[in-house]
Design a protein around this nucleic acid. Sequence first.
RNA 1: CGGGGCGUGGCGCAGCCCGGUAGCGCACCUGCUUUGGGAGCAGGGAGUCGGAGGUUCAAAUCCUCUCGCCCCGACCA
Length: 420
Amino acid sequence: MRSLSDPFLTLHEEPSDAEVASHRLMLRAGFIHKVAGGIYTYLPSAVRVLRKIEAIVRKEMNRAGGLEILMPSLQPADLWESTGRWEKYGKELFRLSDRHERAFALGPTHEEVVTSLMAGLVGSYRQLPVLVYQIQTKYRDEIRPRFGLLRGREFIMKDAYSFSTSEEDAKAIYHKMQEAYRAIFRKLGLRARMVDADSGLIGGNLSHEFMIMAPSGEDTVVSCQSCEWAANIEKAEGMDACPLCQGSLSRETAIEVGHVFYLGQKYSLPMNGLFSDQDGQEKPFVMGCYGIGVSRLMACAIEQSHDDRGMIWPVSMAPFQISVLPLGPAASESPFVKDLVEALMFRFPDEVYIDDRDLRAGVKFGDADLKGFPLQVICGEKNLASGNVEIKVRKTGAREVLPVKAVPERISAILESLGA
RNA sequence: CGGGGCGUGGCGCAGCCCGGUAGCGCACCUGCUUUGGGAGCAGGGAGUCGGAGGUUCAAAUCCUCUCGCCCCGACCA
């Protein structure tokens, strides 16, 4: 991608209403644009990050046996009435009506829709278990949207739902999802922690949250100093020692990015989600549901990885892995640079960003650091005169000068060492 | 929903108390000079002062209503 066709400018001044790093940096770097409170347009760089996160999530869901579907955001009220949540969900549910005054909700989650789907499609134990998932925009009329993408009223979520014939089978899937989540966060290059959690409005009696430790987090994790046990503060309320080993407890703020629930028959029972078992008996599905906040994850990555110059993307979700900075008018026209760019685009397809704007070096450096792509290939006129360019690693600040021809191979090695 | 604050060119703000022809920085456009860490000079374009009503010879400024946004408390990926 050439920056000449990139109309999304970076800002030199701090946005006045951004409280946390991810929000501030995304505004400054031209990742998002606010449309209304808690509602944003994702600009090209942000979309690229989202697509990368989604690709990793998809891969792990598919590996775990998940089948991707896509359910509607617009959901009829009677589905919600069938589980009592039309009343219980409260003001957080966006409600609207069609031209015939029929009531609808904008989906904040999809237990009702998916249970009704499976109730209609599945009749026999032979069809089970099933795991379906989707990646989709969700709507919640948050009491107080804030912190940019960390708490929006419209956000992107991966939600998965499992249907099993027994509690044992359902819990096996639940544990498989826990493992899939660990793999997802590891591949994204994020440090996440799994903690015991409350089930809240979704229901069920077994639930774990995946937390990204961050000072800007709105959640608090209580963890044992001596063993691995940790829980959401709501779950740990009243405890003064670790329930496993009696060790002492400490608290840290965190951001919730994933949540797995064992639902049991909470939805299948009221919604008649039944299958026939081996004996010909009709039984309700035993369910689980599993969410990951995709757009929130993008913000978390920044919360967890930035410095005073800007974002520092993990290779796995960087909008581009490589930015090329030709400095000065002669560099942009240099045959060395043209050949280099061609070679890089061949070797790293769709991962090369070229800042060929007619701007001073300092501006390009500043923007490159702000946007935080992992590697910068700096093409200055003096180095070019001797057939060299410089590679800078955003994360460490390490720089090296090397011959143009050696660049692709070297970049490959550095990306590898950065965990690509 | 309660408490606090703010709406003035794209962004950040001043002006409001004490009414009198809308200003600054950044960004943008043109030209010349510059060119490895956010350049200099000169010129230029751009604002229904959130909206409606009122007071007044005159309203960004005073009054009333309204909408939006942000921050602090009760929910969640």
